[in-house]
Nucleic acid binder design. Structure first.
Lengths: 191, 191
DNA sequence: CGAAAATTTGACATGACTCAACTGGAGTGG
DNA sequence: CCACTCCAGTTGAGTCATGTCAAATTTTCG
């Protein structure tokens, strides 16, 4: 089960793991390979899984009334991701989760995950950390939109996600930044 | 203890209350009256309380490098509020919490609150609901910044907080919307 | 290799900002 | 009760950042 290395490493940064716990983890998560543009979640569906990304990347977005894709989050390697709102409440998602590139991940069904959260302190810690990080990330992003112009947002992005421009289509990055692809193209030269 | 009516009502929407639990609540929260512009939390302090607003309103904001006040949230009557990030992590706050007007509130120390969260299902439900709402609100706000222009943001605000313009100084509302007071003044006529 | 999509670039339009001047109301002291 | 001051809010003129649309260029991928 060599795929589990990155997941163990992730968890061990939060809480120590022993062999017994590792075994339960191996039994609970499922490996999956998806291709570029494949969906993990569509608008209107309930998010029933939690995903850990091994390789590749996903984006979370919603379609606005004009039909534009508004990207809220890029999830890269070694991140847990799901639509937390739908995952928590059991209500239909307003967002899509889609692969930007060929992606490998481990996923765990909600019921299994919640059971581990109850019974394994390590996973309880993981969940709490997910919620806290999700919240803190959201707040940073609000301030970024509220306080920064296009150039500074790009600078900020490049610190958070170095090399993202050579990896993710710039039209998607532009959406994430809340600017047009034309503007992104222009400000890249001012970097 | 007639001050507790609104708090009971708030909790009872989430979980039923009996007399015994109400008593514990009365013993745990403290009533406080603060005047306009008074601070509940300053940048650099650790947020050690959770507040429930009975009357009046607060704002949560941070000061950006240019010295501008960036308002992230207005908290009105019948809302719980605190700097969740600092409250949860115990790290110093990057934000201020300040009264917009004369305000009456109930506050509870973190340790007492967490003890109630552990022991009273009603308060456990309250905490979970706070976290979920805080997260969901953040996401809505991200999409609002990403997808809406100044006029549409104002429309959105007036749905969320009807009558806010006659209650909170427009210069603060402008900051919340991420626009200048000049622009706010102009777009109000287009409403 | 060739078609389709992504990116870049130019010309122009426009939404929002800046700065300064003006208006009006709230509070204060005589 | 008036006059004065002090902010908050409004308004006008000019500027700047970003958007729009079309065309040229490059990249991607079947």
């Amino acid at each position: 089960m060599k795929e589990f290395g990155p997941l163990y490493a992730y968890i061990e940064k939060l809480h120590p793991l022993n062999e017994e716990v590792k075994e339960r983890i191996v039994k609970s998560f499922v490996f999956k390979r998806i291709s570029k543009n494949e969906f993990l979640l569509q608008e209107g569906e309930v998010c029933k899984f939690n995903y850990f990304i091994l390789k590749g990347s996903l984006r979370l977005y919603k379609i606005d009334p004009k039909g534009e894709e508004l990207i809220r989050y890029f999830a890269l390697e070694n991140k847990f991701v799901s639509n937390l709102t739908s995952f928590i409440t059991g209500l239909p998602s307003e967002e899509f989760i889609q692969a930007n590139e060929k992606t490998e991940l481990l996923y765990i069904p909600k019921a299994v995950f919640l059971e581990l959260v109850e019974n394994l302190p390590a996973i309880n810690r993981v969940y709490r950390n997910m919620l806290e990080k999700a919240y803190i990330t959201s707040q940073k992003r609000i301030y970024q939109f509220q306080g920064l112009n296009a150039v500074d947002r790009l600078r900020w992005l490049l610190e958070e996600y170095p090399g993202i421009l050579s990896r993710i289509p710039n039209r998607l990055v532009a959406s994430y930044l809340g600017i047009t692809p034309y503007t992104l193209s222009r400000i890249k030269s001012e970097l």
